[in-house]
Amino acid sequence: MSLGKFFEGWTFRTNRPAYAAGDELTAYVTGYADGTAQVRIGDTIIALPDADDDLGDQLVRFRVTEFDDGDSTGTGEFLGVVEGDT
C-alpha cells in the first residue's frame, strides 16, 4: 500500500464534475434515456449514442466528444466494456 492513498480525497468535490472533449473516462453506464446509454457522474450526464443497449450497470470506457459546462451534460464515443467487470 502506498502512502499516497492516505492523502487522496481530502477535498470538497463538486456534484457536477466538468470534462473536456478528448478526455477518456472509465465509468458505469447508469441507465438509458430514449434508448441512449447514459453515464451519470454525480449530477453530470454524458450520453453515449453509439453504445449497445444492454450495458446497464457495466463499467465502460469512453471518450468525451462534447461537453457543455453550463448544464453539465455531454456526449461521448463508446470505446468498450472494461474486462473483468460484470
Binding site: 487522496e8 480525497g9 456534484n15 457522474i41
Partner: peptide, 13 residues
C-alpha cells in the same frame, strides 16, 4: 451535503 471526500469512479478506481 458538501462533497467532502467524495470521489467518482473516473477520479480513482
Amino acid at each position: 451535503w458538501t462533497g467532502y471526500g467524495l470521489e467518482y469512479v473516473p477520479d480513482r478506481q
